[in-house]
Design a protein around this nucleic acid. Structure first.
Lengths: 157, 157
DNA sequence: TATTGTTATACTCTATAACTATA
DNA sequence: TATAGTTATAGAGTATAACAATA
């Protein structure tokens, strides 16, 4: 019942195929690792984006994640319902919401980061430490090149 | 207007983020490279899956690509409309369709493979040849580990 | 008039269930 | 009874347009 091995020039050697499937596998491992904490990989991304910067508006966070602002709303709704973030009107510009991690959010973030680290380690289990590090560096080069100024627009995190 | 650089432990260092964005970038480059040929990266994957094996049923191809058989139908519909593949009832089991590349399909496949090779080269432009090769090998290890027997199920190619 | 957050809507992609024709 | 292909339908996920409040 297993997928047959592909010969020399098969689909499974295409970068599109490889990146997509690697992303799928990582998503699944993250989901499993984070499920006990009540969040998914996408929400961990939001928590990280909040923790890495000074408190900002929803749009700032959305931009960091290359997520549409309308998509951000539901994401924050869920995190707010879980008590992991707070939304407060900005003092000087009351159109904006200042989004911050709650202490519960910070706590969840710590645990979630550890859980996700384990998931990443599991995904790279077949690589030695050096190759794993090389993979990370190469991926960062590939992804960061396209970022400056370019509206990656769809999907994200 | 560019996305700010993330500090040390940011979202942009997470494998989930990196794989997803790398897949998105590859998809976009493939789409641009293949557009003149009238197909997309997904359809190139189908053509490759057909070329790599003896003529088989739709389900066999679907399985190779980890695509649902109901999803496969529309995919083949499109390729058949473009004259790139043919569907013929199997001689011995008339429930099955034998799917094959037409000569136009083979021709398109050749051109599309070249175009996609260029797109892949562009994506890896920031890496030297050795790192590019290491990346490919590592990705294949990661993805192939999960394949045998495991129903990767959703998404695919 | 422009912008932030929000809502409503539509569109894409995929999976689930049900139907047909074969076996 | 089971299977290959098909169709219809529903469910995520996302983007587009429109609206309210504020600047």
């Amino acid at each position: 019942m297993s997928t047959e091995d592909e010969p020399g020039s098969g689909v499974s050697k295409r970068l599109g195929y490889l990146f997509k499937h690697a992303a799928m596998l990582m998503e699944r491992l993250n989901a499993e690792a984070l499920a006990p904490l009540g969040i998914d990989g996408r929400e961990l991304g939001v928590l990280l984006a909040l923790a890495d910067h000074e408190p900002g508006s929803q749009q700032q966070v959305a931009h960091r994640l290359s997520v549409d602002r309308t998509t951000m709303v539901a994401l924050f709704d869920a995190l707010e319902d879980k008590g992991l973030v707070t939304r407060q009107p900005h003092a000087e510009d009351r159109r904006r919401n200042v989004v911050e991690l709650t202490s519960a959010g910070e706590d969840t973030l710590r645990q979630a980061t550890q859980a996700s680290d384990s998931a990443e380690h599991a995904l790279l289990a077949t690589l030695d430490a050096q190759d794993a590090q090389r993979l990370r560096v190469s991926l960062q080069k590939i992804v960061s090149v396209a970022r400056p100024g370019s509206p990656t627009s769809r999907l994200a995190n």
